[in-house]
Design a protein around this nucleic acid. Structure first.
Lengths: 243, 243
DNA sequence: CGAAATCTTGACCGATCTCAACTTACGTGG
DNA sequence: CCACGTAAGTTGAGATCGGTCAAGATTTCG
């Protein structure tokens, strides 16, 4: 278990409202895609209800069972969203990058969080309270459209992942994951795994041992080359996707 | 393959606009949870942009690859939403009942459908065009809140299902599914499977053979009793959930 | 630099899939 | 309403994918 997990997660190193902080809020709000089409005056109004909070690496942002009453928008850093299965097994659901948000699940339903969120590195987050957000959405309906667009993308991804887990075998799931990492034209078809292999295993519904073995197998087949722990070169994408 | 699948899915038996149909639209709109808090005048405006369409059992409503430009709201009947894996395996994603909707995924992103929708029985559906819907959402922001609430529930479900597929074994997934079927206090703890075992298998990421064997096993353990093909009595829910 | 976590590799085993044969349920048409 | 054909469901035997456990190598980070 991570050392910082024992830290009380209410002891944030920084928790400021818009008018008494060092201007971080502005940058926070500015980068959020769901807000970035608004005018300056509206932005300022939004900044008025957002709160910027900093989390240290490993710190828990929320836990399953917590009352969900805020939207969390990542300003800087990385956030792991994971669940525990009924048997207590941890499963990585997704990783948030700056501009991504979470916490919306229960925002509209007044329920409890069903997942955990923790900072993978030192992270800065903007939060908006449920009621403040609802006011904003009612006042500026165009924000809703953005939020819904984001929701629909998330839903799409979640359902695609579900299908993969249900129908593809481990080989294929790994291959598809590698192919997705390639997306943004990287040099030499070289990708950097965005997470530890342990996390990757849980994300793909398998074990670190199997990941290790399958990657070796793919290398033997000549489809990939294992450069270092986190770096992999994709040599034959087409064959990879035909597995 | 279903016989009706060969039928051109543009040949609907009934496709009427609000002002020239037998009043079905009103009932359609009325039952939709995302609209049901509105006033009468607003309802009428909404009915003005909705279209009611009837589908015969087995008919395809949309296919993966189709341009997604409408929201589909089920008025009557049942709709199967399913995907095909890269290997061509079919996986059931969810079943829509009256009041549920689909098609929102690409509604905000102008992309293509990634799933298939087909009528499980004779079904009546209301559709709203993308642009009409966006107008409505901008005009009546409270609808957006309802839609987002529904989205977040869907997302929650999808992520829960993902976790189960990734971390639980087949026994457990079946047990959890049975337990969920029990939800609404049914007589004698007797449940009726909402789908064929073939579909159930694909929903749970397994095969009909395994479903069959596991159910028999659960009966042997005394946790359930197989009454008929689609009826199962839950005898020991607690033990069932401890598998 | 050293402790702790992650990763790798091997051996083994068991859950689940596959294939095949058979039975049962269901919808259609006479 | 029954008979028939097709799809769904069941059961068995065998194969295998992938999980588990354990030991050792490597990486990470204070």
């Amino acid at each position: 278990m991570n050392k910082e997990k024992t830290m009380n997660n209410n002891q944030h190193t920084n928790c400021c409202h818009h008018d008494n902080c060092s201007g971080n809020n502005e940058s926070c709000v500015a980068i959020v895609p769901i807000f970035n089409h608004l005018e300056k005056s509206q932005m300022e109004e939004i900044m008025g209800v957002t709160h910027s909070v900093a989390y240290k690496k490993g710190e828990v942002i929320y836990s399953a069972g917590d009352q969900a009453d805020s939207l969390y928008i990542v300003n800087m850093g990385r956030v792991r969203i994971y669940r525990l299965s009924e048997a207590g097994k941890e499963q990585l659901l997704r990783i948030l990058k700056p501009g991504d948000f979470t916490g919306e699940l229960a925002l509209f339903n007044e329920t409890l969080h069903e997942a955990y969120a923790s900072a993978m590195v030192d992270t800065s987050i903007c939060t908006v309270k449920r009621l403040d957000l609802q006011d904003l959405l009612l006042k500026y309906p165009s924000i809703s459209l953005k939020v819904m667009a984001e929701f629909s993308r998330r839903l799409e991804r979640a359902e695609r992942q579900t299908t993969r887990l249900a129908t593809e075998k481990v080989d294929t799931r790994i291959a598809l994951f590698l192919a997705e990492c390639l997306e943004v034209g990287s040099m030499n078809n070289e990708i950097t795994l965005p997470m530890s292999k342990k996390d990757l295993a849980s994300y793909l519904g398998t074990t670190p041992e199997t990941i290790s073995r399958k990657l070796y197998e793919l290398e033997t087949l000549g489809y990939i080359r294992l450069i270092s722990n986190k770096k992999i070169q994709i040599i034959d994408l087409d064959s990879l996707l035909l597995i």
